[in-house]
């Protein structure tokens, strides 16, 4: 297994971990931030796969703007969630 493949596997595992954490925490603000981390990991993965344009878009959109949208909404509705 070469270095790049190992890197790939690491990111893939972290992706699943980040997704599970984002869905399990009860605090929606934490969920939003962890979702931003998830997006950033996804962006790294795509850059590693050679899809630089997609990675660039995801870095700008997923890690930047959509996290801000989520946080803005959480700020305007209540912050805790039942599950």
């Amino acid at each position: 297994m070469s270095g790049l493949e190992l890197f790939n596997v690491f990111i893939l595992v972290f992706l699943v971990v980040a997704a599970v954490i984002a869905l399990r925490v009860k605090d929606l603000l934490i969920a939003s931030v962890v979702f931003g981390i998830y997006s950033f990991l996804m962006c790294l993965l795509w850059a590693e796969m050679g899809a630089v344009d997609v990675a660039f878009t995801e870095a700008a959109v997923g890690a930047g703007v959509s996290a801000v949208f989520l946080i803005a909404t959480v700020f305007n509705v209540k912050r805790d969630s039942s599950d």
Binding site: V52, D53, F56, T57, A60, V65
Partner: peptide
Amino acid sequence: SPGGGFQGGVIMGA
């Protein structure tokens, strides 16, 4: 290079 209207637009909006 990587980039274009969508990316530039999102960065500008950001």
